[in-house]
């Protein structure tokens, strides 16, 4: 990726013409960004493929690659369960979040709603809340309803904590729709609900995907609720399960399996970023900048 720009002289931070240092500097910067972003992940990937002796000897690039850590992981732990749990909980809460958030976002974007400004300010503030502030209250709810180790114990909180951002992002997308279209639909006789389901949502499908990706990532990565509400090992999600791998036996070095677990838990998100980079950037900026 360390490609110098063909010509940078007409660009914002460009130095005067005939100043090759600038191109070199940029190439170095690009190289540093790539190393900075990828090195820790690649290191973990390499570790997961090394034999234990290579790990212990700190061999950087191993001559011999092995899948033994992955095999161990699946053999000794219900790792398929973890993947399943994470996928299920993230997917369902994402759908719920969109299902509840999109209508609310539409009402906030386009319908007359008394107290709309207050709702918006509250939503903005709530997106800033660290989860630790609500974890105690949610723990009580989970206990009172006997939801511990039930998927709902994660699905409900994940939907709730991701709703504010979903609403803000979707609202900013709805506001970008041409207003004439909805006026035309009203004249045609669409009621607000038909308008939402037959006109607005089909038109904002890309926005739904964008928002859904953000929600999915947040749900997949969540830690504190998963750690607290799911104590049954077969119900754990990947981040929690992986973080608790440490030392299946006293004599075994857990680095290999731990690295393998990291790679497996990270892989779906790496793929998501690879294919949906544009949507992620769009969603993040829509939520933060325009919200």
């Amino acid at each position: 990726m360390a490609t110098a720009p063909a010509s940078s002289t007409d660009q914002p931070l460009a130095a005067p013409r005939g100043f090759p240092v600038w191109g070199t500097l940029l190439a170095v910067a690009v190289a540093l960004i790539v190393i900075f972003s990828l090195a820790p992940v690649l290191w973990q990937l390499l570790t997961s493929l090394k034999t234990n002796p290579d790990i212990a000897a700190n061999v950087y690039v191993p001559k011999q690659l092995t899948l033994v850590h992955y095999r161990n992981l699946f053999a000794r732990r219900p790792f398929v369960d973890y993947l399943f749990n994470s996928t299920l909980v993230s997917a369902i809460s994402t759908l719920l979040c969109l299902g509840l958030g999109a209508p609310a976002a539409y009402a906030l974007a386009r319908l007359r709603l008394p107290g709309e400004q207050i709702v918006l300010v509250v939503l903005l503030i709530v997106t800033l809340f660290p989860y630790i502030l609500v974890f105690l209250g949610l723990l009580e709810i989970v206990q009172a309803l006997g939801l511990a180790n039930h998927y709902l114990a994660l699905i409900i909180p994940y939907t709730a904590i991701n709703l504010p951002l979903t609403i803000l992002v979707m609202r900013s997308f709805f506001q970008q729709l041409p207003k004439d279209l909805e006026d035309a639909a009203r004249v045609d006789g669409y009621n607000p609900l038909q308008m939402l389901t037959q006109i607005v949502l089909p038109m904002t499908l890309p926005a739904l995907v964008t928002t859904g990706i953000l929600t999915f990532i947040a749900a997949w990565n969540e830690f504190i609720f998963a750690l607290t509400f799911m104590t049954d090992p077969t119900r754990q999600t990947i981040p929690v399960a992986a973080s608790q791998l440490g030392g299946t036996s006293v004599f075994e070095i857990p680095y290999g399996p731990s690295a393998a677990a990291t790679v497996l838990g990270t892989l779906p998100l790496v793929l998501l970023v690879l294919f949906c980079q544009r949507q992620i950037v769009q969603g993040l900026t829509a939520g933060a900048v325009k919200g």
């Binding site: 041409p178 004439d180 279209l181 006026d183 035309a184 006109i199 038109m203």
Partner: peptide
């Protein structure tokens, strides 16, 4: 409508 407002 001026913009025609056709459902895309």
């Amino acid at each position: 409508f001026q913009s025609y407002a056709l459902y895309p």
